[in-house]
Amino acid sequence: MSTDIVSKSTPKKEHSGQSRLSAFGSAFVAGGFTMYPVLLILVIVGAIVAPRFATAANLLNILDQVSVLGLTTIGLTFVVLIGRLDLSLEGIVGFAPMLAAVTLVPVAAGGLGLELPSWAGLFVALGTAGLIGLFNGFMVVRVGLNPFISTLGLLVLLRGGVLIVSNGRSIYSPGKALTYLGSESWFGIPVSVIVFIVVAAMVGLVFHYHRYGRALYAIGGNEDAARAAGINVDRVIWSAFVFAALLAGLAGVLMTGRLDSAVTTQGQGIIFSAFAAAVIGGVSLGGGRGTIVGVISGVLLIGVINNLLTLAQVPSFYVQASTGAVIIAAAVLTTIASRRSSGVRTRT
């Protein structure tokens, strides 16, 4: 029985010389490192083009700016890994902190008159986000709606909801608990950056080492096989929507903190950047593929490009168009790299 043994030393002789390089290439791409050389080049170019770019203050500033997009993208990655999507994350970024804000401030400042204690703000925001996630999961798992249409509907609904609860006005200085994370610094590093790094590290570990992460990849790769293997597919899908919503809620809180106000237009357009960052980072929209390391590279790339274009004093009309062009180019690069390295065609 034991004539054939799985071992790392048995592969055929012929591809041992060239295969070490190609194995490294595959691991490099599969690990999500594809865009890091590009990022490095961009940073070097940036340092040459705009002297102010390569300063510690500016780099921290970039990190601070991308933390909101970063958290949203990490949230989006949960649902994209299982082959779904969630457009309502953009709505949550705006709605969750706004609802929290209006429960805190007095009527005169545009509140609902509840005037909850300041510490409750964070809980209201995250609780709201979590409930929205539960609702999304319910619609997809129980009702069986296509997540595109159910979350699109919710996105529009939440956009309107922001206007309803706020009466169309932004809420200024909604309270310390809500703004702390987005406005304070520890040892010269913005708390929002620390939150982003901690969340990224935790989610990265879960994706890679936790049974929950394994279940996400299995479901995205082949849902029926995951079911046949005994994974509770429905529960995992449901929870992925909840985690995504919670992270979007947290992103919204950071944004409110940075502006020291809950703005009615908060988060508008962020879902498109989040999708772009995910795809650039090597996350397959078909599900089953993607790493947090890659997602971070996508988020950083978008942040760096925006920052560079601004610093290089490109006219603002051109900034948007060039960002789009760069997104397409980067997505092409990632897709080709992942196809070349694995031989598996992915639907990005």
């Binding site: 299995a218 790769g221 598996v344």
Partner: peptide, 23 residues
Amino acid sequence: ASGYVGILGVRENVAIGGLDVLS
């Protein structure tokens, strides 16, 4: 259709059959 997850390796494919006993 429902036996294996093609894009995952042997190790991960086998492991998804018993995530609870391995964790």
